[in-house]
Design a binder for these strands. Structure first.
Lengths: 239, 239
DNA sequence: CTTCAAGAATGACAATTGTCATTCTTGAAA
DNA sequence: TTTCAAGAATGACAATTGTCATTCTTGAAG
């Protein structure tokens, strides 16, 4: 087993503690696991016995309603923790996780994890990460409430650009490691509707490409993400 | 200033610490504030200088897109903390809070709050609260993605029942302290659509009443909340 | 190269939801 | 009580989105 002290992603993880007044006990019940693209990490109906710290790869966290309707709740990356809500009552755990790329995760036993969060630095790091995730979730809720599909798709593309985008001359290149169906599950719509919004953005010249896409007009995409919501004719001056 | 030790809601707050190995420092830069129903606590464009612990009352946390589209992100109650995401970068604070009932909040200065979360028990309590809020937010995201308005409204009513419902014979009585517009902002739809869904539930005999409503058929409401999502004809056996 | 299957795309249509106009209710103030 | 304004409700219609059927692409396996 590698020691956590030398982990290349230590600084990105919640286990990195700048001020060493309260030195971290690294997990001793840790196991490093590898997953192939598409492989399931845990599923909605099991009670997990620990948490996972992502060393490498993209993990989709999903929820299914049993009628074949899946939602991708979020995508977790290097340094993120998944399954941490076992801290709450365990039996309400109702999410699944799947590797979207080949991935390496460190499994940390529940007891060990509970011990680790006795460390001030670690809890605070985890709290910050959680608050950040919550903020993003709340922003997504607003989008769902207020915006049309094409707008939410534009938001998603801006997000992906921020995370995985590569600048190429005047364009941004994004290698979507996502099928159209997965994009639909992120945006919250049917695959067909997503495909049509996608086509619309292409027709407008804002993006191009298929699996690898290019953002040709970043400003237009930003506008699409922000301004196209349901709107009423609010009379400026009802005089 | 009242001392926190004697606060009647101490046990509901994040400042309550069972194992006293690491005794809590109660906030010393605390101010108790009263708000009237409808009064604004902080708004989206200000950078708050501290957090609020709710002693009494219901607080709606909202987000506006500037085009008159508001969303109620969540309703916070006794023992909850609002504004705690000042722990993250302050300038991204983009929510407002308004009292839905007469309310009493304790304002805690940012410096003081940062000091308080040095206490293990307090951070862990806050972390648990945040994880719980996140879980609810993620569940709401799934509902938005998968369910129709009438279904989301049913979910909301079940929630309100759980929080404020009073058993009356075979029924549940809920005093909605919410206008139809507010209900719409919670469910994520237009007021007219909400009103129609409301009417539909009444027509089905599942609920009755106006501002004070009665759940006549809890099971039917539960079913409505769970089962009515968009569904495809998944062929059972395509042989 | 051909075959084939899975994903992507598109057309047609229906269901849901949003928008606007109008009317009905309700409760507070005069 | 009467008046009036704000919220609630409803009708009519349009826009968006979901569903199903079908076709087109693409890439892997033989």
């Amino acid at each position: 087993m590698d020691s956590c002290q030398n982990c290349p992603i230590l600084k990105k993880s919640i286990f990195y503690n700048q001020n060493s007044e309260d030195p971290i006990q690294y997990p001793h019940l840790k196991r490093q696991l590898s997953f192939k693209k598409g492989q399931n990490i845990f599923d909605q109906n099991t009670s997990p016995t620990g948490v996972y710290c992502i060393k490498k790869g993209d993990i989709k966290v999903m929820k299914t309603d049993g009628h074949g309707n899946d939602t991708i709740v979020r995508i977790a990356n290097t340094g993120d923790i998944i399954g941490d809500d076992i801290i709450l009552s365990q039996n309400e755990f109702k999410k699944s996780a799947t590797a979207m790329t080949d991935a390496v995760l460190c499994y940390i036993d529940k007891t060990s994890f509970n011990h680790l969060i006795n460390n001030k630095g670690v809890v605070v790091n985890l709290l910050k990460k959680t608050l950040n995730t919550l903020r993003k979730a709340e922003e997504h809720i607003c989008s769902c409430h207020q915006k049309k599909v094409i707008s939410r798709l534009s938001e998603l593309l801006m997000d992906l650009k921020k995370k995985n985008g590569i600048r190429e001359n005047a364009q941004w290149k994004i290698d979507l490691n996502l099928s159209r169906e997965e994009l639909a599950m992120l945006v919250g719509t049917a695959p067909e509707t997503l495909i049509r919004s996608f086509a619309e953005l292409k027709k407008l010249g804002i993006i191009s490409g298929q699996k690898v896409i290019y953002i040709n007009d970043e400003e237009a995409l930003e506008n699409m993400a922000n301004s196209i919501s349901y709107e009423r004719n609010t009379l400026a001056c009802p005089m």
